[in-house]
């Protein structure tokens, strides 16, 4: 197993506010050299975390966007047989050199690099339920064999692997056992205020707290089906700022509600409650 040389601790970045628990989980994963599995509601910044880690530790980021058709092998390497078959027919290049037809995927590239990098396996739950199990060995050993050439690709510097998954999907146990796990809880009002500050540094404190009160009020209405997330809040505040909002108005109405609520039914429900002044 390749050694883990020590890295500075991750503390979030200017643009990415990480809770103390999240910072802890990142540092545990980096130190133990295990993959970090991040779950949480949509819009809690799972994907952005990898970018922030790469930025804070000054490493390159390789992203593997998992799709429903993805196979574990795609992340390691793909043997382009069709190209080779084609070249053998039309005689371009040296067909005997199989290496030329081995194309590394994001994990493969990270292993082959001389320097350490951050690999993000984004939305792993989108693939087949068995997908994570197919990566167990490679993530454990940080190495794989290219069967066609008999070559072994082993990581020179153990990459930091961050895996994101949607909150409502479950992953196989054998896979979970190998990961460090962190659940990004939906930010509470205090954390949310910090996050919004990053995007709107000039916003008045009073306006911000008013927006947050309304936002959490909406989120906690049990009738709302698709609850607004962080990114929607940030967009909503942008819209309010852009329109030159009058803070006093927020008490009586909620403008640009469509930015927060994306379902017709939710909009109707919210309007109904607002009309009844139940807040």
């Amino acid at each position: 197993m390749p050694p883990v040389t020590s890295l500075p601790a991750f503390k979030g970045t200017d643009r990415y506010i990480a809770s103390a628990e999240l910072q802890g989980a990142v540092n545990v994963a980096v130190t133990l050299g295990r993959p970090l599995l991040i779950r949480g509601e949509p819009g809690t910044g799972k994907t952005l975390l990898a970018k922030a880690v790469a930025e804070a530790l000054q490493l390159d980021l390789l992203t593997w966007h998992v799709k429903s058709t993805a196979k574990a092998q795609d992340g390691l390497y793909v043997y382009d047989t069709v190209q080779r078959l084609n070249d053998s027919r039309f005689g371009e290049g040296d067909v005997r050199d199989i290496k030329r037809y081995i194309k590394h995927g994001p994990l493969g590239q990270a292993f082959a690099r001389p320097t350490r990098s951050v690999v993000l396996i984004d939305e792993i739950d989108k693939a087949d339920p068995e997908f994570p199990n197919d990566l167990l060995h490679e993530l454990d050993a940080m190495a794989f064999d290219v069967i066609e050439t008999g070559e072994q690709i082993a990581a020179k510097q153990r990459p930091i692997v961050i895996i994101s998954s949607n909150a409502d999907k479950e992953l196989p146990d054998a896979f979970l056992r190998r990961c460090v796990f962190h659940y990004i809880a939906f930010p509470d009002e205090r954390q949310m205020a910090e996050i919004v500050r990053v995007h709107h540094p000039k916003l008045e404190a009073k306006v911000l707290s008013q927006c947050l009160v309304k936002f959490y009020w909406l989120r906690e209405l049990p009738e709302i089906r698709k609850r607004p997330s962080t990114s929607e809040l940030v967009d909503w505040i942008s819209a309010l700022v852009h329109a030159g909002l009058d803070p006093a108005k927020l008490d009586k109405e909620l403008p640009f509600l469509g930015v927060l609520l994306k379902k017709e039914g939710d909009l109707q429900t919210a309007k109904h409650f607002i009309a009844q002044k139940r807040w």
Partner: peptide, 18 residues
């Protein structure tokens, strides 16, 4: 507090068990 966080991120892999 550190020990609590460490235990949780290494031993519990489902938020439903938190």
């Amino acid at each position: 507090a550190g020990f609590y966080e460490l235990c949780r991120c290494l031993l519990v892999k489902k938020e439903s068990q938190f």
